[in-house]
Nucleic acid binder design. Sequence first.
RNA 1: GUGGGAUUAGCUAAGUUGGUUAUAGCGCCAGGUUGUGGCCCUGGAGGCCAUCGGUUCAACUCCGAUAUCUCACCCCA
Length: 423
Amino acid sequence: MFQKPKGTVDILPEETAIWHKIEEVVRECTKNAGFREIRIPTFELSGVYKRGVGDTTDIVQKEMFTLNDREGTEFCLRPEGTAGVVRSVIENGLFNEPMPLKLYYLGPFFRYEKPQAGRSREFYQFGIEMFGAETASADAEVIALGDRVIKKLGLRASLNINSIGCPDCRPKYHDALRDYFKSHENELCGTCKERLEKNPLRILDCKSPICSAIADNAPKTIDHLCDDCNTHFETLKSTLDSLEIEYSINPRIVRGLDYYRKTVFEFISDDIGAQSTVCGGGRYDGLVQQLDGPELCGIGFGMGLTRIVLAMKSKAEKGELELPKNPSPVLYIAPMGDRGVVYAMKTVTALRERGIYAECDVVKRSLKAQMKYADKIGAKYVLVVGDNELDEGKAMLKNMADRDDSRQVELDKVAADTSILSF
RNA sequence: GUGGGAUUAGCUAAGUUGGUUAUAGCGCCAGGUUGUGGCCCUGGAGGCCAUCGGUUCAACUCCGAUAUCUCACCCCA
């Protein structure tokens, strides 16, 4: 017997109803905000990610699924969405469209990781990208969309924002940070000692209690912003205030992808385990040029839909949310005898054409077994059709929710007049 | 990549200090007189007890390895 690959999941019919709901909310929210869907390959030339996401990131260094074609060209299964979208924007000249260019995507992504709650090797992500708008209003619009999707799904997540500066002010901040941590070098954990030279920003993220305590008093990125970045951040805050979107400023938010500039943010859920970032993103003003495109700023986020599903299930367990279910048939027709089967098939087909979910027996079950089955699948009404009914042209339409409630209907009207399927 | 926990039927679990045909509930299928669901009763199907190796007269039970799941670190959505 075959097993699915490690770290992948089978999403079974019971759960796909939840996914349909999520996709419905995503499509509605993006449509109302003018984001249009883009569908791009699930794999790209490796360089797209190596150059886009950054050579030194964990994602590129140890989490990519790579494959080679017969000519030896190296590809990667997409580990994230932004780099591929940027590649497509450049390759298709979408930067010539009216600005801002607003896009969204939805689909599977792949990272070679050790699986745990909220982290798998194949996971689904919804993301948006907005190009050509460098104002803080654009940041707020992107954040507001993430906020709306989360709220429309009945979830709560706290929004954390930060600014990590731009190529002008970030080096100065790095120096200040390095100076500070150097004075505590002996106390830092092993990994953080290494981080000191390579990427001191990451020490802020360390979960070790000692490093974390030291980091508490570290210089904050928002105290070292240049005038431009500072104004941008202040404007973002006041815009979020006026939109009544709650947030907290978290100087520890440090994203692991090299392309981020200025605004970074995360929506964090407390309904799931340690992998609690349900949506994360930020501004990436240098990325398009980094991938050989024109000068074009951008901002976006990725939303981990697998984690959204986890959060919804967790909420449902606490009784705070009702999970979407697959639909039940309005009518189940229980035929008896060959003439009944013909009637049942014709009527069910006609009802389906009219957009009504109807079922009938196709396994030759006894009447009793059919009733049990109709009950199990949650049919609202049942119509028993045998020779007697066919001869008279009439049958009893039974309301499954109420034992004493049934009405006589004319058989040839069941498919024609759907109003009889509600009483 | 580093740790901890787990693996017995489709699902949730029991299985005595190693000892004959490996259990239960739920679910599935079929019945409980001629044409009616939920409750109840009866029967049936369904397991190489994760895999491989070792100890033993004898292993679901003890030991080792592998795989997978799971939780955390790391990292991220």
